[in-house]
Amino acid sequence: MELLRLGLRLLLFNLLLVSLTIAGFLYLVPWAAVVVSAAAALLLSVFFAAAITGTLEDLTRRLEDRQRATETLASEVAHELKNPLASIRSAAEMLHEVREPEERRRFAAVIQEEVARMERQVSQLAEITRIDARLENEEQVAVPVNGLLAQVAERFRLRENGRVKFELEAPEEVLTVRASPERLTQVFENLLDNAAGFSPAGGAVRVALERSRDGGALIRVSDEGPGIPPEHLSRIFDRFFSHRPGEEGRRARLHPGLGLAIAKAIVEGYGGSIAAGNAGAGGAVFTVRLPSSRTGISRQVMGRS
């Protein structure tokens, strides 16, 4: 950055010299004109130099931001992979030492389970790092949200097979947003998956769609689970943030903590917003706002830094 500023200063100085030389050629022109032209040249070069410096500084800052984001992600990933690695390593060591078949089966199962978890983490990670680039390249169409939510809810009804109920409330009018249907499906699958994971047996997950004040779509996904502890609200969309109280079984293993981060990246990519909160009666509520397909969302997608 310092080098850049120095270079610009030299450039400025050169411009000044050039303008003075031009003035020298016009030797016969009255002295006052020389001064005026030199001053004009000076002002112009100052103006350009300032403009160039501004642009370059902005560019450098954005590159630095991106660099930092990459570094943060790399350290998060390293950190996140060490837990399954630790389980795998200790289980593998114990396999060497124990002879009882039942214990050996248990440690082999730990290794398989953790390998599957790492595999999932790695593929979700590939997903989240490419979301920015992918959203820009994917074709966006007007997606009727009512129908999309109905499909997702139906898939979850089949998946959960009665353990959790899925209720959909949608208005008569069809609300559309501009998006890739697959991406939008992914957003609600992740939200419903999260809600189902926290639901007690027999609980209900409610999906409510309505028109927002600015004409866009407002979707609320609420569950009857324990809700989100207030201290976690600010971190719930962070990559790898995962908090599952009292959950020890296989379900917890299936969630590497990227689903909500991915949902957020997609929603924001489409110029919308996502928020998490708790319902008065208990349970978590996730609110997604998406701009209407009639307002230029693609502009917002492109304008993202």
């Binding site: 837990n83 389980s87 200790s90 214990e103 730990v110 917890a252």
Partner: peptide, 12 residues
Amino acid sequence: DEKNIRETVAFA
């Protein structure tokens, strides 16, 4: 908070 680590350490 990692169940597998906790249980393997306890076992050992």
